[in-house]
Amino acid sequence: MHAFRNILRIEARLYLRDLPTLLTTVGLPTLILVVLGLVPALRKPDPTFDGQTFVSYFAPSLLVVTLAMVGVNMLPSVLATYRERGVLRRLATTPAHPAALLAAQLVLALAGILASALLLILVARLAFGVPFPRHPLGFTLAFILGTAALLALGLLVAAVARTAKAAQALAVPLFLVVMFFGGVYLPRFLLPDFVARIGDYTPPGVQALLDAWTGTPPQPLHLGIMAVIAVAAGAGAAKLFRWE
């Protein structure tokens, strides 16, 4: 526990020192929100979105950006780099277990995601009148399960990739899929219906987030699928993970 605390403190410092990555992961979704919010038409209620504004409708997809960047991109690349460079192995020769470093990275990923999400929700509310999630419990649940599913997928990538390059090679397509089905590249109302429906079930489950944000409780099936993905990918990662 003692070793974990010290490792977490150092890793947090390293994370804060990497300013470009920090700004991208925490700030990019909010930046996109602000750019879109500056377009007056996107701030007008529109029947296409059940009378909401486009900005409100699109906000959950911006959460997907954070989750995908941190969970699928950053986490596996950091872990694979640490393994490739022998950081984990060196730690294994000391009284500290390399699992402490992995745990520290997970905590930092969660902190980054949380900071990014809070910033987005706050700016959306204060600058563009997007209401706070109307179904807080459902939203929290959808957010936790979606985050868990993506972090577990990220760990699975880190587990099967032998090198940092291999991790990138696996993470990039996964990242694109998550972003595409999460309605980031094309807003989901422009996607063919069946593609949008697939997106309901790909992590982090953007429909559940949207539902909860706008007031309807998320569908149990949507949440259930995320839980299943989180558990399956997490178990796979735990089984396949190599420290060297």
Partner: peptide
């Protein structure tokens, strides 16, 4: 143990590395 080709994170500083590892013992 000093392993072959074991590196450290790029941004970790010398004193930080030693203080961190010292804290394990």
């Amino acid at each position: 143990v000093q392993l072959q080709e074991s590196q450290l994170p790029d941004r970790l500083r010398v004193a930080e590395a030693l203080e961190l590892y010292a804290s394990f013992y």
